[in-house]
Amino acid sequence: MSNVLVFIEISSTGKISNTAPALLAAAAKLGTPVAVVATAPGAGAGLTDELGALGAARIYVGESDAVGTLLVSPQLEALSAAAAALEPAAVLVSNSVDGREVAARLAVRTRGGLIADAVDVRSDDGKIIATHSAFGGAYTVESTVEAGLPILTIRQGAIEDQASPAAPEVTTVSLAVDAHNSAVIDEVNDPVVDSERPELRGAAKVVSGGRGLGSKEKFVLVEQLADALGAAVGASRAAVDAGYVPQTSQVGQTGVTVSPQLYVALGISGAIQHRAGMQTAKTIVAINKDADAPIFDVADFGIVGDVFTVVPQLIDAIEARAN
């Protein structure tokens, strides 16, 4: 079977990104999954067991002192080197901030064909076919690459499978990274504490709040309901703009796309750009004071009411049930 390269992102603290399992599972559907990582010299050894458990049949480690200082360049060099050495049938990359840039630059270097934001992949007679969910799920589109190496960015949270574990063979190479055409990292500001809450992307339940919550302090209500339901916290762009929550919580056209079992919209009007990020949820619940809010057009259960009276009552009812 042909090699399928998977770009594995490593966090600033050395952790394997949570996008790795889905990428390796997708690669296993297309060929032999090869995990490609860029690390500081000597730092790759600790990753072998975990990547093997996630299904990597082979690990290609590119080592460079520039990891952590040059923005995305060492990662690009690692993937370029692996692509040159292993004649892959495809390259899979997460549709993340870093992943996109690596995929983009690799596509130019290899004169490959880039497929962005796939939600699924399959191989049909050796041809790689990607599925997309366009315009907030209004369309399902299939695409392929006409000529050249197919390079795909995969939407985060879209693929839930996991590949069977393997005992990977490890290749380590030393990378030459050209600092000249690279941006330079000055400081990393990743939050220190990881929240106990599920991550928004791929969460089974999401509770989102909008401008209707009124303030950062009062947005806590959204978090309380999320915790009562074991849900992730989301938000509208207006809530992010107002500073109630960090940008990473934004759901919608220019935010995260979610497709949970349950989506609860609190104090969100349901502008078309918000709906574009959540309307494929299995069940949608909305609470809004305004009976004409467009969110009700897509809600399976809508309540015309004040979130500050309805939600506390709901939380009490959930807690009473739990006891």
Binding site: A107, T110, R111, G112, G113, L114, I115, A116, I129, A134, Y139, T140, V141, E142, S143, T144, V145, E146, A147, G148, L149, P150
Partner: peptide
Amino acid sequence: TGRSVVMTAS
């Protein structure tokens, strides 16, 4: 140059 093309849209 490699190019991505749409096959189907529903």
